[in-house]
């Protein structure tokens, strides 16, 4: 898999290159600011872009803006955004940015759990999603007349794990439930949220995320 990486800390950039190399991905370009990211993505046409949010020159959100721009320019490009803190509005913008192509938004800390991180990368690259549990928690927080309030605590947990991008089996493992029970919970969630259950893991997750996205926007 061809990857373009944007990260302004040299240490972390070098470390990520090593990590991706070790996992059999090819880092075709590694840059340290947003302009460079746009150029490299134009030039190399990668399958996946990994970018930090806070980068020079202003050290605010140029990485995120570059990611959003790239998703408009290259539909289908998978983008994983890493950040020192997660912000639901960024998540909402990312999710809203395109209907196709995987998207991920993780805390930088998550790179320490190598296997899970690589897993998330692969999921995003293949068109799935990887949202940090903290983002999901924030998205679930909002709202007033709240369809989510109709969910039982267990269904809440299932929805949270679904939004992170886990499969039924993964959810079952995390909550110590059989896959059948997970399926039943998910069915209930869709009924309560007025979503018609669609086929396939991936599309269900997107449906839930779309719902979260709508709720997270004022």
């Amino acid at each position: 898999m061809r990857v373009v990486l944007a990260e302004d800390s040299v240490l972390l950039r070098e470390g990520l290159i090593r990590l991706l190399d070790a996992s059999g991905m090819e880092v075709v370009a590694a840059v340290d600011e947003a302009e460079g990211l746009l150029r490299a993505a134009e030039e190399h046409r990668p399958e996946l872009v990994i970018t930090d949010v806070r980068m020079p020159p202003t050290h605010t959100d140029e990485g995120l803006r570059a990611a959003l721009l790239l998703r408009r320019q290259q539909p289908g490009l998978a983008v994983l955004v890493l950040s020192q803190y997660v912000e639901e509005r960024y998540a909402a913008q990312l999710l809203a940015s395109a209907a196709t192509g995987g998207v991920g938004y993780l805390l930088k800390d998550r790179v320490a759990d190598v296997a899970e991180f690589i897993d998330a990368l692969r999921r995003v690259a293949s068109g799935g999603t990887a949202l940090d549990p903290e983002v999901v928690a924030q998205l679930l927080l909002r709202g007033n007349s709240d369809p989510l309030e109709r969910l039982t605590p267990r269904e809440h947990e299932v929805l949270q794990l679904m939004a992170e991008g886990r499969s039924n089996a993964g959810i079952g493992q995390a909550l110590v439930l059989s896959e059948g029970a997970v399926g039943k919970h998910i069915g209930n969630i869709f009924t309560k949220l007025d979503l018609s259950p669609a086929e396939g893991d991936h599309r269900r997750v997107l449906a839930v995320l779309r719902f979260l996205r709508i709720r997270s926007l004022p």
Binding site: S9, L12, G15, R18, L19, D109, A112, V114, A115
Partner: peptide, 16 residues
């Protein structure tokens, strides 16, 4: 923070 992330990542890589 960057240094610690990098450290944790390298240790994670070594572990894996």
């Amino acid at each position: 923070q960057q240094r610690l992330v990098s450290l944790a990542m390298n240790l994670g890589l070594a572990r894996a």
